[in-house]
């Protein structure tokens, strides 16, 4: 987190704002990006890969609750722990040494929360679908790091997309990635006017719906094809 804050401080130099974003908002953006990043502690990918490899997926599937319900519950639990262990200390440190990451207004803060929930859902669904690949592929190897890079770099978690050239931004805004980091963070710092904001949240909701549909479909196919290894 501190690295990216110093980066933005140096980049802004003596300028007060760039692309309509003030220096202070940008720092808040960076702090909050680290904060929500610390809450995205997904285990679902690993969990699926490990249990397919060891064959313990069979035991998980025998339980009288939905397979992915277990994974989701575990991840939400993990997030709550991360909130206490990493998220809050991070905010306190930032508040002490850099600045308090204040939202643009109370209403923005209120909107940030559902926005964050949806971005959590999008990110989780992508991770879960990715993990499901392991049902058939057994080993994912470097594809996991491809996915991780795509999410970190194209979601605006490090550098917001408004610094990207127009054509690239156009392409990216169609993809689900910016709705993971950039949208909730932009809402928090009050970057959008109300119309754009509602619009963007609509797209986010639509993406969540689409990914959920895709997830359900893949789940049905993948679970029927799962190969249980070992004994």
């Amino acid at each position: 987190m501190f690295a990216s804050i110093f980066f933005w401080m140096a980049v802004y130099g003596n300028r007060d704002s760039a692309m309509g974003v003030t220096r202070e908002s940008m720092l808040t953006y960076a702090i909050m990006s680290a904060f929500i990043g610390s809450l995205f502690t997904y285990d679902v990918e690993d969990r699926i890969i490990q249990s397919v490899r060891k064959g313990s997926i069979a035991l998980d599937m025998l339980k009288p609750v939905g397979l992915f319900g277990i994974f989701l519950a575990e991840d939400i639990g993990g997030m709550l722990v991360a909130l206490l262990q990493r998220g809050l200390p991070l905010l306190i440190l930032a508040g002490l040494f850099i600045q308090m990451p204040v939202p643009a207004s109370g209403l923005h803060l209120l909107l940030f929360i559902p926005c964050f929930v949806l971005s959590y859902a999008i990110n989780w669904l992508i991770a879960a679908m990715f993990g499901m690949w392991a049902f058939t592929a057994i080993s994912l190897g470097p594809m996991r790091s491809v996915k991780a890079h795509l999410v970190t770099m194209l979601s605006g978690s490090l550098v917001p997309l408004w610094f990207f050239p127009g054509w690239l931004r156009g392409v990216l805004e169609v993809l689900p990635f910016p709705y993971i980091y950039q949208l909730p963070l932009s809402v928090y710092i009050g970057r959008y006017d109300w119309n754009t904001l509602i619009n963007q949240m609509g797209i986010q909701l639509a993406w969540t719906g689409c990914l959920y549909g895709l997830f359900m479909w893949l789940k049905k196919r993948a679970v029927s094809r799962v190969m249980v290894q070992g004994g």
């Binding site: 300028r15 760039a18 692309m19 550098v159 610094f163 990207f164």
Partner: peptide, 14 residues
């Protein structure tokens, strides 16, 4: 590639 492209975008702006 993307990492460097991002630096490039930031430099282009600032």
């Amino acid at each position: 590639g993307i990492g460097f492209a991002i630096i490039r975008f930031v430099i282009a702006e600032f």
